[in-house]
Design a protein around this nucleic acid. Structure first.
Length: 814
RNA sequence: GCGGAUGUGGUGAAAUUGGUAUACACGCCAGACUUAGGAUCUGGUGCUUCACGGCGUGGAGGUUCGAGUCCUCUCAUCCGCACCA
């Protein structure tokens, strides 16, 4: 019978499901592997990126399962989020209905790919049972002061009608809809991720060599730790008076204390309290006030685009070392959210300060040797014009100045981070409600744990106008959990990234306990860290940073034990491209996985995906290469007639002819390679190539035993990649023994060939090829080599003879 | 600007510790079988040259008997962050 993928694949998918073949075992004495592909958002249909992601993960899971590991390979649904609400607005469907029916459809799609997921551990993050435990964590975080509510300037996306975290703003635009983000002052809930800044940074070291260096670098940059000096400028007496003695001065942070003597002005952010006070008391021209207000309303990106702008504030401060009087400016490039919103400006040794000073004719004072007049010198050098510090290297001066300030009690060495706290409030319906209550007398009160989950009301009108929870007639009305009086329920919902920050622990928790607890410590102790995590690079900061933070926080809150990092190893898969561009509906360059499976079968889809490029690289779609993958499977299937025994034969190597020996060697080379591929490099493309070579070599000989051994090993090796056809062949030919009896031993004897082909090079340049007996001595080989390149030796002397065993001969002549 | 990567045939890509560059596949060319082929099979296929040969892993040097691989410099492309003081 010829190869019919649809029959074979549905047969095995049914069988696996009936046998619950992919459920992890309870026995914690077994060696485990936790293989996790990032869970999908239930958008409605799978795309090729999913196929790639899950094909990679499945190959690993199946490999380890075959090596008798206890394997956890779960799947679920990252199910809250905006698109569900957008669908509701557009098509009038309830988000819940839309989400769960998408899940049902995509679950079927996943099944047709033959992925070896656990079926009992599947969940959607919008399941109320999941929300329940998440709300418990949130309350605990509030109690432990890790979560707080605050009114502050936030990133607001008008299109999505919600606040965004800093991580969700890309070049000033919303990560989801690309709408320009506005600034808005409003209350919201924050997680104190900065508390973990140092640990998040330091523990990146534990991941070196296990996570892509790019991701580590991105996280490190995002945390943005910098060390320097913090000190305050005192206002001059006249300025103090001007400000009605409301301010003594202001704090600044600098990473360049070595340039302290070069300060010629200071600059404040437009949001700085002193600037606000000056405006309030109308101590600035009306025109200036207007302009500063305009800048305040601009986003950081708009300010950057606008170029530098500033105004002399008409006040002065005293230099802490020289006691000189220094002007204070407002500058649009000073960030309110970093370093106290104020800077000391050293135009001679800082590009930005230089640009600003030139623009407004502010004085320059060089304090490091080495630069040229008329530019900012940011290099190294000795100090000048710096009193007692003159002559020392600026790198040493950094430390010296901090010490000096500390001794004189003027300031202190300190650390700053770019990382900002994680704003988790979203003004949307389709999310997990934030479980707090606003009470007139008690203030902000967490819901009682026994009342969880605080579930979403289903009878809502979703129009895109305002927050449906706020508009609901009764939902937000409640009793205060503390005093019992009338109160109002919080209508903000949690950022969806909260759900994906702990799902790895939920999977690890035995589903039999899902009603009793959110996370089971023992189960997590056994299964975590995730041995291999696989997903797209687009999550390098967002999800991966949040999940790392949550792991540390949940540990400190006692929900899990002593776990530093959730994801032990990370593989970031490349994008799937077509015509050099990312596949997307709007570009119309997509391939529908369903159609692909319909035409060629899941095995072909999986084989192509893993063969066309290594998983870390981009994958360019190629229809005819898909045909090629299909042809290979067909060929493999056709060769089943060559097998004559259902046992692994024991072959007498010495009785084989040359072609038979080559075929055997190719087979065992592939077997040898497979360990590295499956456990280390994930270069599935090279393993598949080796199997193809082995099959090509088998085709060049007729020995039934070699054929039997060959197919026994090839189907064993390829089962993680093309599981259906291999399961079918294995069952029919070998009673499935090659898939169930663990490792196959590598026989070194097969690598010994009768004769070896060696390259012959003269002065490193390849000139000829010789075939030598396997047992030939060095002398014999050199003699043959010389003969083969006789014409190159005419009139020359061989000064050196190099033999690289089994590879080549190099003769150095003069 | 800072950080991270990547440059190998017509294409996707291979290449243990430095050891025959281009495995495997796609495409292309030729042939076979066919009424036909966008099916299947066989063979060929880095560039250049009539040929001997020469040249070939972005470029330039270096180390070495020998470099895609190691070192120095340089160019190009991609990705991330970006006025973080």
């Amino acid at each position: 019978m010829s190869y019919s993928p649809s029959d074979i694949e549905s047969k095995w998918q049914t069988k696996w499901s009936e046998q619950q073949a992919f459920e992890p075992l309870d026995d914690k004495s077994l060696e485990k592997k936790y293989i996790l592909s990032m869970f999908p958002f239930p958008s409605g249909r799978l795309h090729m990126g999913h196929v790639r992601n899950y094909s990679i993960g499945d190959a690993m899971a199946r490999y380890y399962r075959k090596q008798n590991y206890n394997v956890l390979h779960p799947i679920g649904w990252d199910a809250f989020g905006m698109p569900a609400e957008n669908a509701a607005i557009k098509h009038g469907r309830h988000p819940k209905d839309w989400t769960y029916s998408n899940i049902a459809y995509m679950r079927k799609e996943l099944k047709t790919l033959g992925l070896s997921f656990s079926e009992t551990r599947e969940f959607a993050t919008c399941d109320e049972l999941y929300t329940k435990w998440e709300q418990e964590f949130i309350i605990k975080m509030f109690e432990e002061k890790l979560l707080y509510r605050e009114s502050t300037t936030v990133n607001w996306c008008e299109e999505c009608h919600t606040v965004l975290a800093n991580e969700q703003v890309e070049e000033g635009c919303c990560w989801r809809c690309d709408n320009e983000v506005e600034l808005k002052e409003m209350p919201g809930y924050y997680l104190d991720i900065k508390k973990y800044a140092d640990e998040l940074l330091d523990d990146l070291k534990l991941l070196e060599g296990k996570w892509p260096s790019q991701v580590l670098a991105m996280q490190s940059n995002w945390i943005g730790k910098s060390q320097g000096l913090e000190f305050s400028f005192k206002l001059s007496d006249s300025s103090k008076e001007k400000l009605e003695n409301k301010f003594e001065g202001f704090e600044v942070f600098t990473t360049r204390p070595d340039t302290i003597y070069g300060v010629t002005y200071t600059a404040l952010a437009p949001e700085h309290p002193i600037v606000k006070a000056l405006m309030k008391y109308e101590l600035l021209d009306a025109e200036v006030i207007e302009k500063i207000t305009a800048i305040s309303n601009m986003t950081e990106v708009e300010r950057a685009k606008a170029g530098k702008e500033g105004f002399d504030l008409g006040i002065t401060v005293i230099h802490p070392l020289t006691n000189e009087e220094i002007p204070v400016w407002m500058a649009n490039f000073v960030l309110a959210s970093y370093g106290g919103g104020a800077v000391m400006s050293v135009p001679t040794h800082d590009e930005r300060d230089f640009e600003f000073a030139t623009q407004y004719n502010l004085p320059l004072k060089y304090v490091i040797e080495g630069g040229e007049e008329g530019e900012a010198y940011t290099g190294e050098g000795k100090l000048i014009n710096s009193d007692e510090l003159n002559g020392i290297k600026n790198s040493e001066a950094k430390v010296a100045v901090i010490k000096l300030f500390e001794e004189k009690n003027l300031g202190k060495g300190t650390t700053n981070y770019k990382l900002r706290n994680w704003g988790i409030s979203r003004q949307r319906y389709w999310g997990a409600p934030i479980p707090f209550v606003h009470c007139e007398s008690c203030g902000l009160v967490p819901e009682k744990v026994e009342n969880l989950p605080i579930a979403l009301p289903e009878d809502v009108e979703i129009t895109g106008e305002g927050n449906p929870l706020e508009n609901h007639p009764t939902w937000s009305t409640c009793a205060c959990p503390k005093c019992g009086s009338d109160a109002k329920r919080e209508t903000d919902t949690l950022d969806t990234f909260v759900q994906s920050s702990w799902y790895q622990f939920r999977y690890a928790t035995d589903p039999k306990k899902w009603n009793e607890c959110g996370i089971d410590k023992d189960d997590v102790n056994y299964w975590l860290g995730v041995d291999q995590y696989i997903g797209g690079i687009e999550h390098a900061i967002l999800h991966l940073l949040y999940a790392r933070f949550f792991t540390k926080a949940l540990r400190d809150l006692g929900f899990i034990e002593d776990l530093k990092e959730p994801f032990e190893n990370l593989l970031t898969q490349g994008m799937v491209l077509m015509d050099g561009a990312k596949m997307s509906k709007s570009k119309g360059n997509t391939v529908d996985p369903d159609a692909l499976i319909e035409k060629y079968g899941a095995d072909t889809a999986r084989l192509f995906t893993l063969f066309a490029a290594p998983p870390q690289k981009e994958l360019e779609w190629n229809d005819s290469a898909v045909e090629g993958a299909f042809r290979f499977i067909k060929k493999l299937y056709d060769r089943k007639s060559k097998v004559t025994s259902n046992e692994m034969p024991s072959i007498d190597q010495s009785s084989l002819n040359k072609e038979e020996k080559i075929a055997r060697a190719k087979i065992y080379e592939a077997l040898k390679k497979s360990v590295d591929v499956y456990e280390k490099t994930f270069a599935f493309n090279t393993l598949i190539a080796s199997c193809m070579e082995a099959l090509n070599a088998l085709d060049k000989q007729q020995n039934e035993q070699v054929w039997t051994e060959g197919l026994y090993i090839i189907t064993h090796l390829l089962e993680p990649i093309i599981p259906h056809v291999c399961a079918e062949l294995s069952e029919e030919l070998f009673k499935s023994k090659n898939l169930t009896s663990g490792k196959i031993e590598i026989l070194e004897e097969v690598f010994v060939q009768d004769s070896i082909t060696l390259g012959v090079a003269v002065n490193g340049k390849r000139r000829a090829e010789i075939e030598v007996d396997a047992g030939a001595s060095k002398e014999e080989i050199i003699a043959m080599a010389k003969e083969s390149i006789a014409k190159w030796l005419e009139g020359k002397n061989v000064v050196k003879e190099i033999l690289v065993p089994k590879k080549m001969v190099n003769l150095v002549v003069k």
